[in-house]
Design a protein around this nucleic acid. Structure first.
Lengths: 247, 247
DNA sequence: AGACTTTTAAATGTCAGACAAATAAAAATT
DNA sequence: AATTTTTATTTGTCTGACATTTAAAAGTCT
């Protein structure tokens, strides 16, 4: 392999991290292309003048970022992985969720971002939504109406509803970008206890959204999302208030 | 450590990947909290009944996802890492960039998503922008006006301009979410050759945006972003047309 | 007693060497 | 020609050892 990748053993950075960074740089820069095979672990160890276990550790770093996949066998090895929308989606959700919880992001901040971004989809979703997506949204509304549904399941259904709404925009980049925004809020939403009355209100707003999408009326989608945001914020505020009172 | 984490050696998944997943699940679920120390490598090897190198590989997977950080020494070990906005930002940019390039996402799709999301920031940015952010945007406009600036530098300045615009919304979750959208397009934008005339037009639109932000006029920000999107798309289309002609 | 230096112990980082498991391709067999 | 077996190569995992780092403990000096 003629790709130029270097590490500096004098640097106060672990060798495995340096090797991983060098390979990542080669991937990001296009020097290593999708499905291309990397040299074997033994060859990489030679090239970087380190031991094989150190190379393995570097490769595990890359695998954890979905940048490579490995395969055993005669024609095995490490290959540059095509980062799929699915992988990216999943990473996005985990990252967003941790980001919010670890940094104690408050409900209002998260809610504001989520609805701002979701409303950005409204025009495209009104234009491009498919019958399947409408059906998904209606199925989720139906689920939300079921008696005895736990709050957790209600929240999960809410997420599914909004995902279908976002997917209606027919832009995979948008769907990916919004994956975190919508799903990261689930833990925060799980703090809310949804009374029969609040569920009814949310379901009513969901229905209005799906109707407006069907009729291709983005303005109504947008203003209903605003209403939904305000209502959700109020519910969260009620929870916070009740907590203050209980202390 | 009383945290329940299990792996199944019969599963066709690498042991190190399973161990990493078990620890990640414990972090995501809140069982392991920020700054908490994990057991030593030797202890983990005991607990999971694997060798220490296998534990190390698992820990490298987690480190690559910024979920843990390790430290040598008597009181060293692996600690649950607080995922910072900076880390998340950086990951987001890398992921988004690779996603677009590896999946051959076309310019229009990426552009559409980016501007839809950016326009979602307009009302908040108009409301909350600071003098610093305005100054940053004006500095970037000044840079863009400089003669002899390479196209690459022009694109980088464009990114910096739009980042300041997004940061003006004063919502860190929004800034994080949009990091990918704005920066991932840089490689795509780098394909465009900006003539003096096109730069002039872009700079003019940038100026109008920053003026509208200063005057807190979100509608003008919005419609100018639409113009910018259309103009950018046209430039990219011109490049594509020229490529077709050259074949 | 306080400040400074040295030693200690415990952890991660790296290495060498060996064997196991998986896998496709080549060779042998039917 | 189709099927089975063998081969070669790779990754996956292990054992064992040593190096480096680091904070804390112990020792020394003023």
């Amino acid at each position: 392999m003629s790709k130029i990748m270097k590490i500096d053993p004098q640097k106060p950075v672990d060798l495995s991290a340096q090797i991983a960074q060098a390979i990542r740089d080669a991937i990001v820069s296009g020097q290593l292309i999708v499905d291309e095979r990397l040299p074997s672990e033994a060859e990489l160890a030679d090239q970087f003048q380190v031991s094989r276990p150190t190379v393995r550790e570097a490769l595990k770093r890359l695998a954890a970022q979905s940048l490579i996949r490995t395969q055993r066998g005669a024609t095995g090895g490490a290959f540059v992985n095509r980062l799929s929308f699915e992988d990216a989606y999943s990473q996005q959700i985990t990252t967003s969720t941790l980001l919010l919880s670890m940094n104690a992001v408050d409900f209002d901040t998260a809610c504001e971002a989520r609805y701002a971004l979701e409303r950005a989809c409204a025009p495209l979703s009104a234009q491009r939504r498919t019958a399947d997506q409408l059906a998904t949204m209606r199925a989720e509304i139906f689920r939300q109406e079921q008696p005895g549904l736990t709050d957790e399941a209600f929240c999960a259904s809410d997420v599914a509803f909004h995902r279908a709404l976002v997917d209606g925009a027919g832009n995979p980049v948008l769907s990916y970008q919004l994956a975190g925004a919508v799903e990261a809020m689930q833990p925060l939403m799980n703090m809310i206890t949804f009374t029969a009355r609040s569920r009814e209100e949310i379901i009513s707003l969901h229905s209005r959204i799906v109707d407006a999408l069907q009729e291709r009326e983005p303005d109504i989608v947008d203003e209903t999302l605003v209403k939904l945001e305000n209502y959700t914020r109020k519910l969260a505020q009620d929870v916070a208030d009740r907590r203050k009172k209980a202390v």
